[in-house]
Measured scan of single mutants.
Amino acid sequence: MAAGGDHGSPDSYRSPLASRYASPEMCFVFSDRYKFRTWRQLWLWLAEAEQTLGLPITDEQIQEMKSNLENIDFKMAAEEEKRLRHDVMAHVHTFGHCCPKAAGIIHLGATSCYVGDNTDLIILRNALDLLLPKLARVISRLADFAKERASLPTLGFTHFQPAQLTTVGKRCCLWIQDLCMDLQNLKRVRDDLRFRGVKGTTGTQASFLQLFEGDDHKVEQLDKMVTEKAGFKRAFIITGQTYTRKVDIEVLSVLASLGASVHKICTDIRLLANLKEMEEPFEKQQIGSSAMPYKRNPMRSERCCSLARHLMTLVMDPLQTASVQWFERTLDDSANRRICLAEAFLTADTILNTLQNISEGLVVYPKVIERRIRQELPFMATENIIMAMVKAGGSRQDCHEKIRVLSQQAASVVKQEGGDNDLIERIQVDAYFSPIHSQLDHLLDPSSFTGRASQQVQRFLEEEVYPLLKPYESVMKVKAELCL
């Protein structure tokens, strides 16, 4: 049975990233139509530049190519590739079939990587351009969430054990800070992308030097003109047959890092959902379990974690691919890159769409948070109580021993009897502590235990987050809708 299948058929496997999760716009960027249309555009740009620099290419040939950029006979191309065992030459023939007058000058002087690699770089750039505003929107939604809850005390956790208090907004800023680093890295790697350009079979530009009869300047002009037509500021000066596969490492490393950030955020949300302090959106008709109707599973956060793990592992592909590119190139890269580049971007696209949807509907339960604080705060307040007693004339050592005994009794009630923490009640009825009984409410005010959390939130948002989001103001209103 021949390899390949009808990918629109229910009898043929289709990647869930495309069929179930990723956005239509990201799927289109990695589609065959987008790819092969870009090949034709690159052939047109090459012909236009070659004509401008004096090669015998007519206006009629150029116009014929322009008129057929979208006229792609995919069936013919597939048949040609089956016959020739070469995808680029299959599309040269297919393009030439609908451009008979231009057929002889299509791909003039070029090698397969002229269309293959340059198209990949265009796709990487455009895919990054799709991700950047999506990530900015996630940051914006979380920034709104953090600002609104900047002063809401909550129990902090280290080692997932109760620690000092923080605020809900401050905790959210930990998430935002990681995503801001990801946004900066995505922008950097996007701006650092260079075009492969017009380089020939081993990167020496020998074929173009021959076409222009040894004119170095025209060869350099050709490279520059096509690079500018493709919208790049610069091209690699040095290439082998391909652009260095280190570029793929750079791009997928940034995406993998984004995956790590999203995994951490969504894990926190899942843990908070278990504590009943916070939940992701839950639709009115949504079913959490087929057997347990009360369940409210954090399905979206779980999906993000599941896909983020996949995204983090994909960076190993370009690392290994770059390491086995012998001399000017081997074909070890080809099949692998067809999979890992598309999957990385479709996965990143999915987790950003999902995280935006989550961040637009996060639900906080202040009463649950308050109750958990009441359970733990008495123990945390013991040092403040000791200091207040010393100020009232008591002995630190005597007070410490009193607190120690009462704390152990209260802990026994919590752990052995399943009761509430009654340390404060014990202190309130103990005559030894009568000098500070009137101060206990103040000493137990949760806001006095959150330090500068709310001020940190305000400063972080104003100095770091809002300036970073400013270039994306025009796209901030787009909502994230999930079908599944």
Rank of each mutant, 00 (worst) to 15 (best):
I386Y: 04
E462T: 14
L42R: 02
Q205S: 15
S290A: 05
S67M: 14
L84K: 10
E148W: 08
Q408S: 14
L258F: 15
M389N: 04
N297V: 05
V29M: 15
D248K: 04
D32K: 15
D192N: 11
S257T: 08
K66P: 05
C113S: 12
S140Y: 15
P467I: 14
M181K: 09
K233F: 10
V189G: 12
A18N: 15
V254I: 11
Y34P: 00
I269M: 07
G231P: 04
R149Y: 08
L121Q: 10
T38L: 08
L341D: 11
D32G: 11
S323F: 02
E343F: 03
R452F: 09
Q458D: 14
T227D: 04
P153V: 05
S323K: 05
E213C: 13
N71D: 12
S454G: 13
D182N: 00
K246T: 02
D117Q: 00
F95T: 06
G4M: 14
S140N: 14
S15R: 10
I351M: 15
A235G: 12
I57Y: 00
V429I: 14
A308G: 12
Q184T: 13
E360L: 11
V226H: 01
Y466C: 13
A453E: 07
A431K: 12
P467N: 07
R374C: 04
M380N: 05
L155M: 04
G5S: 11
M387L: 10
D73P: 11
S290M: 02
P10W: 15
V414L: 06
E48G: 04
I385C: 06
L443G: 04
D445A: 12
A49T: 04
V226R: 02
R33T: 14
I139E: 04
D6W: 10
S323T: 11
D32E: 14
R234W: 06
L84T: 04
G231N: 09
Y365E: 02
K224G: 09
C27T: 14
G54R: 07
W43T: 00
M76S: 10
H437Q: 10
P281N: 11
K147Q: 13
H97M: 14
E79P: 06
R141K: 15
L44E: 04
K477V: 15
N118A: 05
L482G: 05
I139T: 11
Q241A: 02
P24E: 10
I122M: 07
F379I: 03
T154H: 07
R188T: 07
L130T: 13
S359D: 14
Q458E: 11
I238N: 02
K134W: 08
P162I: 07
K284D: 12
K82F: 11
S253E: 07
L155K: 00
H159E: 00
E283R: 09
Y365V: 08
L135I: 12
A348I: 09
Q164A: 10
G200H: 03
E148F: 11
F195N: 00
V413K: 15
R33V: 13
I358V: 09
L55Y: 07
T244G: 15
R404T: 05
